[in-house]
């Protein structure tokens, strides 16, 4: 790395001459600002593994989208069972006050880069239960959401379109992993 100044802070003085140190975040910063990021994004967009996490009617379409008739493997989109192996979380239903802490925990277990798809109206706005005493609306203020897919439930094709929009968003570097919302506290 020719721009040896990367990430060199106070420890520089203690090092012998001709040795430069760097840190992971500095490398990340460097890649982000270079054309390399385009290659990284290309890789990311073609391996959007999602977590099977059915929470309601949309969960059924989420199951259907992974198998023969829609076959998301064509886009490198593969269902995974564990949050630790997944890149995309789909909030596919009403989130109740009881479930919100668990959902947050699942989200925290996912490794970056990670994205959220809001699938269906229940996730977007509370849906038919928007007035209910038990549901949490305004999930977009709690989670950094990238794509909204209206529909009740959205057809599997609409879900696929959501994924394609997410791919576009990643290529355009407009996704919330790149540009975190200040309100999220840098999630």
């Amino acid at each position: 790395m020719e721009e040896g100044g990367l990430g060199m802070g106070e420890i520089e003085a203690e090092l012998p001459p001709n040795v430069t140190v760097t840190s992971a975040s500095a490398i990340q910063e460097f890649i982000k600002n270079s054309p390399l990021q385009k290659i990284v994004n290309w890789g990311r967009k073609n391996s959007l593994w999602f977590m099977t996490h059915p929470m309601g009617c949309c969960g059924i379409e989420q199951i259907c989208v992974g198998v023969a008739h829609y076959d998301t493997d064509r886009f490198g989109i593969i269902p995974r069972c564990s949050p630790r192996q997944a890149d995309v979380m789909m909030i596919s239903g009403y989130v109740s006050k009881k479930y919100l802490p668990a959902l947050k925990r699942v989200w925290d277990q996912m490794l970056e880069p990670r994205w959220i798809l809001m699938m269906g109206e229940c996730a977007i706005s509370g849906g038919p239960w928007w007035e209910s005493y038990s549901t949490v609306t305004h999930l977009d203020e709690i989670f950094p959401v990238d794509i909204y897919i209206p529909g009740c439930p959205p057809r599997p094709e609409a879900l696929l379109q959501g994924f394609i929009e997410l791919q576009k968003k990643i290529v355009a570097e407009q996704d919330r992993t790149v540009i975190p919302n200040p309100a999220d506290g840098g999630v």
Binding site: Y94, P128, E131, S132
Partner: peptide, 25 residues
């Protein structure tokens, strides 16, 4: 109770016809 929606309460606040699409869910 993780996806408890309070349906019975919501239904008491909707007209008979409006409940119809909600019973799907």
């Amino acid at each position: 109770g993780y996806i408890h929606k309070g349906m019975e309460k919501v239904f008491e606040d909707r007209t008979y016809l409006q409940i119809l699409p909600l019973t799907d869910r």
